[in-house]
Write a protein that binds this DNA or RNA. Structure first.
Length: 450
RNA sequence: GACCCGUUCGUCUAGCGGUCUAGGACUCCGCCCUUUCACGGCGGCAACACGGGUUCAAGUCCCGUACGGGUCGCCA
């Protein structure tokens, strides 16, 4: 059986991590089975839908590396892919429903008669879930008054203004687009009996449903766009790798059932399956997401690292054609969890002036041995006849011996004098990259502070 | 409130009746490596929500309770 999945976002102006994760599961499932992934825009609610708000979502998906076989920008045989342009299709389906006597008018709106019987959702993740819509819908809970009131269980499928309602268009589109597997958030589980009733009234076999658990924030409530890590474009801006984000999203609700946690997109594609999806909601953990990104960073080829870092270097004013950049990036890769941290680690190498971190400076200047240490460093390093990775360390050792201290006593002052901070990249390679002249210059500049 | 779903370390999870004195990962804490910063290595803290069953045997099956989440729109 061929597989066709879909992601059907409404254009809200943000690609939310929950939505991206749903998209990912659908995409992964389709790709794993060699099937198709369809993108459809649910913009029936015209007020909040703009081209721009949709582009944000498309850009997010593209950045993550999810391609769609049909949908906005690529076309396909089942278009149009914006619900706002599919009115005639909905009209056609509504006529079918009307003919079969499944609908009636109610104050200008069209309602669908809900059957008075148990409807069972056979969910791939959640198992069988049964409900009687007529019974259920005959009462409604009013949030404001906290009261149950009588209600019409028959669902509205068309508004008096002619607009169609989600449940109806969702079902029609999935039928028309030949969707075989509907993978969506568990918040839709309770809606699914309505959809099943619609499928039956239309005389169409429903697709396979899989409702995936929700991602919650640290407080255990639904993630909102204010929560850290909620918006995909922020990952991009902060220097996360797309594959790392995919990796982390996949892990939120899916497991490969072994101890592997770091997956490339390709591996995810090979291994993803609905049987690995679990039933309970998960809380988003930014720290773990950072760790996953760091792991992906470590695995990047030098070329890929350079390419991914380029925008961040540019923003920091580091010339990417500087011959020292590749070496500097290697120094940064192990201590940055995100690309945005890369410039912080290596900026001092490319800076004309050392930018001193006051706390680091204080730490060094408060020691009365520091002046002597810096003097020894200047003397030793200035006199060096060789300046290579291998030669610098012995030179510093010799300088330390000249004032009868251990090398460790010189490293911190040297670090702060040259790099401006007690933390940062590996010192010796930085010295090598900077060159003898620059290092001595920086040491002398720092000596004046003492 | 009614209905639906869920409940293993703080968090993500493994576990599909015996191999569980419950495994891995993140975080945190030690130690080692490093005469610098990290990476890394090793180790530690830490969980089967509760109560009843079923069974020779239950984290694993069943039923309750509690807690959490979801749905109940002429939003999607």
């Amino acid at each position: 059986m061929s597989v066709r999945t879909r992601f059907a976002p409404s254009p809200t102006g943000f690609l939310h991590i929950g939505g991206a994760r749903t998209a990912l599961y659908n995409w992964l499932y389709a790709r794993h089975h060699g099937g198709e992934f369809v993108l459809r825009v649910e913009d029936t609610d015209a007020e909040r839908s703009t081209a721009e708000s949709m582009n944000v979502i498309l850009d997010g998906l593209k950045w993550l590396g999810m391609d769609w076989d049909e949908g906005p920008g690529v076309g396909g045989d089942h278009g149009p892919y914006h619900q706002s342009e599919r009115a005639d299709i909905y009209d056609r389906y509504l006529a079918k429903l009307e003919e079969a006597g499944h609908t009636y008018e109610d104050e200008g709106a069209i309602r669908f008669k809900v059957p008075d019987k148990m409807i069972t959702v056979k969910d791939t993740v959640c198992g069988d879930v049964s409900v009687n819509l007529k019974e259920q819908g005959s009462r409604r809970f009013e949030q404001e008054t906290k009261q149950e009131v009588e209600a019409n269980p028959d669902i509205v499928i068309k508004r008096p203004n002619g607009g169609y309602i989600f449940h109806f268009v969702n079902v029609v589109d999935d039928i028309e687009m030949g969707i075989t597997h509907v993978i969506r958030g568990e918040d839709h589980l309770s809606n699914t009996p309505k959809h099943l009733a619609l499928y039956e009234a239309l005389g169409v076999d429903p697709p396979i449903f899989a409702h995936i658990p929700l991602n919650l924030n640290q407080n255990g409530s639904k993630m909102s766009k204010r929560d850290e890590g909620a918006l995909i474009h922020e990952y991009q801006e902060n220097g996360f790798l797309p594959d790392a984000v995919n990796n982390y999203m996949a892990l939120l609700g899916w497991s490969g059932k072994d101890d592997q946690e770091i997956f490339s997109l390709k591996e995810l594609k090979e291994r993803f399956g609905l049987s690995g999806v679990n039933k309970s909601n998960s809380k988003f953990d930014y720290d773990k997401c950072l760790w996953v990104n760091a792991e992906h960073l470590k695995k990047l080829s030098p070329e890929a690292l350079a390419a991914a870092s380029a925008p961040f270097l540019e923003k920091a004013g580091i010339p990417s054609d500087d011959s020292r950049v590749p070496a500097a990036l290697e120094l940064a890769r192990d201590r940055a969890q995100r690309l945005i941290e890369v410039p912080e680690v290596i900026a001092t190498i490319f800076a004309d002036e050392v930018i001193y971190d006051q706390a680091s400076v204080d730490k060094v200047t408060s020691k009365d041995t520091s002046a002597q240490a810096v003097a020894a460093l200047i003397a030793g390093l200035e006199a060096a006849t060789e300046w290579t990775l291998d030669s610098i360390k012995p030179t510093i050792v010799t300088a330390a011996e000249s004032i009868e201290v251990k090398m460790g006593m010189l490293m911190l002052p040297c670090r702060v004098a040259v790099m401006g901070s007690t933390s940062g990249a590996d010192l010796i390679p930085v010295l090598e990259l900077l060159g003898q002249e620059e290092v001595v210059k920086r040491l002398k500049g720092f000596a004046e502070k003492l």
